[in-house]
């Protein structure tokens, strides 16, 4: 049966996918808004006692990674495959460094554990929920990089790359709110 109206064009599907992705991001943002509210309620005027230098380093890593993510997508749109692959790989590496910095180092050296009062609860919950998103973003990047290596994306049709980039920028924006909330607002608890 010729169901030509059953399968939508790439352009139409792109429009649907974009709308779906943005709805997902709006939805997901509510989790972070909720965590932010919890932070303000439980630690008014205070902040967890954290290693400032490390915070600055990981934040820089994540911000710079967003720049490379943007480069990767733009290069692909202009038909520069090598540039796209390079940008994706750098983003992936920077994201991984961020994860190591937060979960691998900050979690270990923090002078409090998750069960140590409101600061422990807030710090580990906020960084934990965010790190989980970074982890999924890194996996997404790895998939895009691997499929890119196989030559799946073209300058015209690369929805997966675009989705990955939007998601990565979203994670970055969340951290732009979380970094000051954890490292800068208020006076240290300890």
């Amino acid at each position: 049966m010729a169901d030509h109206h059953m399968t939508a064009s790439y352009k139409e599907r792109l429009a649907r996918n974009r709308m779906g992705l943005w709805l997902f991001i709006i939805s997901d943002a509510f989790v972070f808004i909720g965590l932010f509210v919890a932070r303000v309620v439980l630690l008014p005027g205070q902040r967890p006692h954290l290693e400032q230098g490390l915070g600055l380093v990981v934040t820089t890593m994540l911000l710079v990674s967003s720049f490379f993510m943007n480069r990767a997508e733009t290069e692909l749109a202009h038909g520069n495959r090598a540039g796209f692959m390079r940008g994706t790989l750098i983003t992936l590496v920077l994201g991984t460094i961020f994860l190591i910095g937060v979960v691998g180092i900050e979690w270990q050296i923090a002078p409090f554990g998750p069960a140590d009062g409101a600061q422990g609860a807030i710090f580990y919950a906020m960084t934990g929920f965010h790190a989980f998103h970074v982890l999924t973003g890194v996996i997404f990047l790895a998939i895009v990089w691997n499929n890119g290596r196989k030559g799946h994306y073209s300058a015209e049709e690369h929805w997966a790359v675009e989705a990955c980039a939007v998601y990565w920028h979203f994670i970055d924006v969340v951290w732009i709110f979380f970094y000051p909330a954890l490292y800068l607002m208020g006076t240290p608890v300890l």
């Binding site: 919890a38 439980l42 998750p114 069960a115 140590d116 009062g117 409101a118 600061q119 422990g120 609860a121 580990y124 919950a125």
Partner: peptide
Amino acid sequence: MGFFTPDVGG
């Protein structure tokens, strides 16, 4: 983690 118990800051 002390989100909701007052004794531990929740």
